[in-house]
Amino acid sequence: MTEALLEVREISKSFGAVLACADVSLDLRIGEIHALIGPNGAGKSTLIRQIAGNLKPDAGSIHLAGRDVTGWDTASRSRAGLCRTFQISSLAMEMTVLQNVVLGALGRRGDVFRFFHDPLKDTGLVEAGMHALERVGLRHVARDRTADLSHGQRRQLEVAVALTLSPKVFLMDEPMAGLGMEGSRTMTAVLDGLRAEAPILLVEHDMDAVFALADRISVLVYGEIIATGTGAEIRADPLVRSAYLGEEATV
């Protein structure tokens, strides 16, 4: 109990007659990567949106570092240490790469209402940003316009911004989406090193990455978690095989 930094307790959400999320409970413990997998339409996005604060659950509660954050908005949860990366890169595209990470560092510091303070001349902010870029391997493009980055680099930048926030919990929505073999490998290495800093709730379709990284895996099917366990347990679970992995194995 005490080790869980993020705890989702029996949350439900329905859209009209469609039950998108049925009594879902899961937790994220210190030092782990907990992967959330499930076929398309299983309700992963709905769950992520509820945890991030974009969507309010009909029932149940969400706890972050021991505090009930169910009623909080996105920005408040972010300030409390929940850091989300997006499935589709969500960056300020007209800004430079450095400006994007500096924005993160600024948000982390929390003093955004300064009208005569140039954040790009603030060594603290710039160093925090550059350090984050270094870790994901983007230091050499710091001065480039974000829109000029390749798809893979944008995914990396997304993680770099997350790093500047030094959060308590990472919530990562398909960080590997659209990455090539090489990109996936780099990203896997980055995430692997990250779990020591803060645990990661990882939503991912790339099964190689999931089984390589995850300490625990939860399988979501039709809005319900049908199994939670280690990679080996999940692989062996007959329910999971029929619902999910079985379909892929035949491909």
Partner: peptide, 19 residues
């Protein structure tokens, strides 16, 4: 910086904890 970022992408700004 934050204001311009919010114009370009409000979701991004929220995600770093700024309203």
């Amino acid at each position: 910086l934050a204001l311009v970022a919010a114009r370009q992408n409000a979701e991004r700004v929220q995600a770093v904890g700024i309203e």
